[in-house]
Design a protein around this nucleic acid. Structure first.
Lengths: 103, 103
DNA sequence: ATAACATGTGAACACTTGTTCATCTGTTCA
DNA sequence: TGAACAGATGAACAAGTGTTCACATGTTAT
């Protein structure tokens, strides 16, 4: 049951979903879902350029999907809160849902 | 706790989020979240052209975010399953979450 | 059959956006 | 101070996408 969000919240909601709506960016979020990871390590792990990862992380951080914490030369990123994990888990369940007959 | 989705699932996940990532399309989803609504009624309710609503509904239906049911001349659309509502609810909670300090 | 209504669809446009490259800021250690 | 490392950022381009317009499809009635 979702109490209908007002106009402003709809735009904010859409912005969040749009950020998760790119495969590269989504993989970055998934990479730092369980524990903080440094930018460079994300880049290596996903085989992306540091620049690209950094660009995406900036957007994700601005939307508070991830949070950053500096440790020396490195900056570690992690999922901002539990809700992000839940959103992902719910959407995975949606995918897992058997699609019977239509359309 | 999210068991890491494989490559194919990441793309599928991203596609779903991308569809919810447009304000117009998101409003359409919200409009038929609780009960089936006809295309024309959605258009009137949101002040959009029938054509635009239809275009969006096609994408949403292809991704099984909404399901369609014909009744005479009209076609009623409704959210496909509970997971969609949950995803939206979780993301709303994320927005409601107080953002304490950083940046 | 025809008309009227509801929805679907293809093409075309403007606009947005992901990616790369080059450069810059900031931090640590010598 | 300088060099070396980690990350951030702006510009520019290709590719993708939301919207409109005109027209097609399908359904119910006369």
């Amino acid at each position: 049951m979702v109490s209908l969000p007002n106009e402003g919240h709809v735009a904010e909601l859409a912005d969040l979903f749009r950020l998760l709506g790119d495969s590269t960016r989504l993989r970055i979020v998934l990479a730092c879902l369980d524990a903080p990871v440094a930018v460079g390590d994300i880049a290596v792990g996903l085989q992306l350029s540091n620049s690209l990862v950094s660009h995406h992380l900036r957007l994700l951080r601005a939307a508070r999907i991830v949070k950053a914490e500096r440790q020396g030369k490195q900056v570690f990123y992690a999922a901002a809160d539990q809700h992000i994990s839940r959103v992902l888990a719910d959407m995975l369940e949606h995918i897992a849902e058997p699609h019977p007959r239509p359309d």
